[in-house]
Simulated assay, not measured.
Amino acid sequence: MSALGVIATVVAAALAAPLIVMTATFAVEVIAGLRGTARTRGVATDSCPGTVIVMPAHDEATIIAATLARLMPELPPACRVLVVADNCADDTAAIAAQGGAEVLRRDDPVRRGKGFALAYARDHLADAPPDVVMVLDADGSTDRASIATMARAATQRPVQAVNLLSPDLSAAPMVQVSNFAFVIKNLVRQRGLWRLAGRVNLTGTGMAFPWAVFRDAGLATADIVEDLALGLELARRGQLPGFVADATVWSAASSAEGTLKQRTRWEGGFLATSRTRALPAIGNALRSKDFRALWAGLSLAVPPLTLLLLLDIAGLVVLGGLMLLGASAWPLLLLGCLLVVAISGLGIAWMRVGRPFLSGGAAIRLPLYVLWKIPLYLGLARKRPTGWLRAGR
């Protein structure tokens, strides 16, 4: 091999290494999550510790009545709902009270965000704390068995239920693809992370905490992905969030415009968190020789699905160019093989759990979805989203 070929190979290896690690981590996690987990749901759906469902709500007057109408009949006897009407300029508080919920009004234009709303609820509950605090979004729905299962599991540790968007095969193809990506993130990869790391990520709705954990948690922040950050902080303290795979919470799917807003919020916050926390987590795990913590750090380093695909495709193009300069073929072949494995895992996941969320016709348009997301990533490169972003309902 010529000197130019050696240099090109070194450059190719350096370029391919992070892509190989991220793609391999994603593929293994998806494959590990294809099989269902052991059931924890009991038969006694009325057997529930004292539980408060905290529902942060910012200008949700158009949906809060319907949300409570679905939720209130599902409550076990020892469970109640506390709505925090946070910086609302509409009738959210009055409508929530009419719907049977306990209501707190919070007005603080400077300290805005879901984390501050949760901290406000915590202060209110401190005088007579419940056994368990559960968090549900203002557009969320669930069933009595899921509530009871989450509450019982949360007496021992913080837990996260399966958090999915309601399937709608009549929605725009881009919305369907995004909903399927949500299934991969919040069901398949969560199951894989649970098996490989013994913990999962908190996703903001359908999470529950023992009072002692909720009481001491760092809630009052303006972090745009406060749920992810909270889960990482709890794990750092040794309070690893568990996965309640047979409890499910649902949120309504958005329009194409609302979906883009959702993805901008979550992916922007995730990437910012990943940049600052993934490498330190991996380093700490290597020093302590903790394989499960190492996997959690690697998982945190994996970018969102569409961005991972874009990076891999761009990487393959560059690696192909370096081969023309004499670089070895192994970086391109290894990355290409891992990408095939990852896509195959996604195909199997679609056949097993994804078809209610993504039609075959919409799946064919996946390349268009990838292109649709490019402006999002260009925007995130310029400015990270801040504030309490609500998706279009």
Score class of each variant (00 low, 15 high):
residue 38 A to R: 10
residue 28 V to R: 11
residue 33 G to K: 07
residue 131 D to I: 06
residue 222 A to V: 03
residue 357 F to R: 08
residue 189 R to A: 10
residue 364 I to M: 12
residue 34 L to N: 08
residue 230 L to I: 03
residue 68 L to M: 02
residue 356 P to C: 11
residue 334 L to F: 12
residue 390 R to P: 00
residue 92 T to K: 00
residue 324 L to W: 08
residue 360 G to F: 04
residue 182 F to L: 10
residue 221 T to L: 06
residue 20 I to A: 09
residue 219 L to I: 01
residue 39 R to N: 08
residue 118 L to F: 04
residue 67 T to R: 02
residue 199 R to L: 10
residue 254 S to R: 13
residue 313 I to H: 09
residue 139 D to A: 00
residue 303 P to K: 06
residue 280 P to K: 14
residue 346 L to G: 14
residue 284 N to K: 10
residue 196 L to F: 03
residue 198 G to F: 04
residue 322 L to W: 04
residue 97 A to P: 03
residue 289 K to H: 10
residue 156 Q to Y: 07
residue 135 V to M: 12
residue 203 T to M: 13
residue 37 T to M: 15
residue 9 T to D: 09
residue 289 K to T: 02
residue 175 V to K: 07
residue 184 I to H: 13
residue 127 D to Q: 12
residue 287 R to L: 14
residue 180 F to N: 07
residue 100 G to S: 07
residue 117 A to L: 03
residue 99 G to E: 06
residue 71 L to T: 09
residue 239 Q to R: 15
residue 381 A to L: 11
residue 264 T to C: 11
residue 118 L to N: 03
residue 369 Y to S: 12
residue 8 A to Q: 08
residue 250 W to D: 04
residue 225 V to E: 15
residue 344 S to W: 11
residue 157 R to G: 11
residue 36 G to T: 15
residue 262 Q to N: 12
residue 206 G to L: 03
residue 63 I to D: 00
residue 193 L to K: 05
residue 198 G to C: 09
residue 377 Y to F: 09
residue 78 A to W: 00
residue 377 Y to N: 00
residue 43 V to M: 11
residue 255 S to N: 03
residue 49 P to T: 14
residue 11 V to E: 05
residue 188 V to I: 15
residue 179 N to Q: 03
residue 349 A to D: 11
residue 276 T to I: 10
residue 96 A to T: 05
residue 369 Y to I: 02
residue 115 G to M: 08
residue 80 R to I: 04
residue 107 D to V: 14
residue 267 E to V: 09
residue 40 T to S: 15
residue 283 G to N: 14
residue 43 V to K: 13
residue 6 V to D: 09
residue 361 G to Y: 04
residue 96 A to P: 06
residue 292 R to H: 12
residue 49 P to M: 10
residue 133 V to M: 05
residue 124 H to K: 08
residue 325 L to G: 02
residue 280 P to R: 13
residue 38 A to H: 04
residue 329 A to G: 07
residue 231 G to I: 02
residue 140 G to K: 06
residue 261 K to M: 13
residue 162 V to H: 01
residue 383 K to L: 13
residue 217 A to K: 13
residue 364 I to C: 12
residue 202 L to K: 05
residue 190 Q to K: 04
residue 299 S to H: 09
residue 299 S to F: 05
residue 380 L to P: 05
residue 290 D to W: 05
residue 122 R to D: 01
residue 119 A to F: 07
residue 237 R to S: 12
residue 175 V to C: 08
residue 301 A to N: 12
residue 86 D to C: 07
residue 224 I to W: 05
residue 366 L to F: 15
residue 380 L to C: 00
residue 210 P to S: 11
residue 271 L to W: 02
residue 178 S to T: 12
residue 312 D to Q: 03
residue 158 P to Y: 01
residue 221 T to S: 14
residue 390 R to E: 02
